[in-house]
Amino acid sequence: MNVFSTLLARDLKLAIRQSADSLTVVAFFAIATVLFPFGVGPETNVLERISGGVLWVTALLAALLSLDRIFTVDYEDGTLDQLVLTGQPLSIVVLAKITAHWLTTGVPLLIVSPLLAVTLHLPTAGYAPLLLALLLGTPTVSLVGAVGAALVLGTRRGGVLLSLLVLPLYIPVLIFGAMAVEAATTGRSATPELLVLAGFAVLAVTLCPWATAAAVRQAVE
């Protein structure tokens, strides 16, 4: 049992015991997506055209709403102090928490996305790239989001501020995620976009735990 697996197991246990939190995020994803046909009209050709982008935007917003779960509770009840003092590298500790966030937010969003894609008439060719893009893109969303979540610990208006910090940084993932779907539905190969998303994930997993650890350290200081 090392620090990573111990902490991951605890966070997953907490998420399962408080599964309403994860379900709320998924429910938000669904309701926000369903708003679009009301906004732009139910015509199949319009919805087809925007489905990939809409799913990505709503998935990002849903993930954004769940980011404060990563650290806020631990910060407020004193657990974060103790986690800084485990004697193990803090980047491993935060990586465990980020992994737990991805498993309890990114993966559920990934699972329900095909259902929502049906309501937006996503062309058949778009499903595989959508799932692959979400699989490669949502880890980056959790990793980058964790940096923001750690930075706003102890602020007066954490939630709104967090979106201002994190959403501009999500734009690259949004661009390539949505374009992967678009490429496939317009007969192009989605491979380049998917490769870029994979590159982003590799970059994020090497840099973000480190930046998050620095942010956590200054938060408990």
Binding site: K13, L14, Q18, D77, G78, Q82, V84, L85
Partner: peptide
């Protein structure tokens, strides 16, 4: 600081108790 942290236990005014876990957990 990690080497130092491994040598100490810190009890602050915050109890770091998780409401959803049992005492034993």
């Amino acid at each position: 600081s990690d080497e130092h942290a491994a040598k100490l236990r810190f009890v602050s005014h915050l109890d770091a108790v998780k409401p959803a876990l049992s005492v034993a957990e």
